[in-house]
């Protein structure tokens, strides 16, 4: 087929692009992934019985804000990386900011604490399961993010995969706060961040394979 014929083929009867399609795909991916992750908390873990009391502690909202800020930043990165030639711009520093802030808070908490308390502040009561649970809860969101990204056109596949994984990790962490009893900054600074980095790494590994077009 000559190129001119291909051009005619592509152009003939090519209707308008439905501007609502992208929005529908985004809302389906986000709500579907988050819903499955939330159901997993109810079915497999359990909702923190002290959630009502914890929600009155300012640290609970620091935890929520931390996860939410990273989720928003990572989702913006997913949107940009799914669009050929769109620059990431200031998103990298924007993503580093919440992590840096939490780490500083954690450092202050550790430095002002008694030496004997420090290991408790870091390990809490659930350090062995926290990161793994976040990574597992992020999987339905990760699948949704990959599906979303496959409907877009990422040109930097490894980075796009990592962003999809990190967004899933942040959403997974946000959902995990329904179950998680921990409120200490040093704990969150280590195990939450690690939990988000697991799906991000996975995304970077499988991105070139899954996101090719």
């Amino acid at each position: 087929m000559k190129t001119d014929d291909l051009v005619s083929l592509l152009a003939s009867g090519a209707g308008a692009v439905d501007p609502g399609a992208a929005r529908r795909r985004w809302s389906l991916a986000l709500s579907g992934g988050t819903l499955v992750a939330t159901l997993l908390v109810f079915a497999w873990l359990e909702v923190n019985p002290a959630l009502g009391r914890d929600a009155r502690a300012p640290m609970f909202w620091v935890k929520e804000a931390f996860c939410a800020a990273l989720a928003v930043g990572a989702l913006m990165a997913v949107a940009r990386l799914g669009r050929p030639g769109a620059p990431l711009g200031g998103l990298r520093p924007l993503l580093a900011l919440p992590v840096a802030a939490l780490w500083m808070l954690a450092a202050v908490v550790l430095l002002t604490a008694d030496a004997a308390e420090r290991s408790d502040l870091i390990l809490g009561i659930s350090w062995t399961e926290c990161s793994v649970n976040i990574a597992l809860l992020s999987m339905p969101v990760f699948a949704a993010m990959v599906w979303l990204m496959r409907g877009l056109a990422p040109t930097r596949l490894r980075l796009a995969g990592a962003a999809a994984g990190f967004a899933a990790g942040a959403m997974g962490a946000l959902v995990y706060t329904l179950h998680c009893p921990e409120l200490e900054a040093p704990f969150l600074a280590i195990w939450y961040v690690l939990g988000m980095l697991i799906p991000a790494t996975l995304g970077a590994l499988v991105g070139p394979r899954l996101l090719r077009w």
Partner: peptide, 10 residues
């Protein structure tokens, strides 16, 4: 050209 067509929604 085919890629541009398929991805024009982006």
């Amino acid at each position: 050209l085919l890629a541009v067509h398929n991805q024009r929604h982006t």
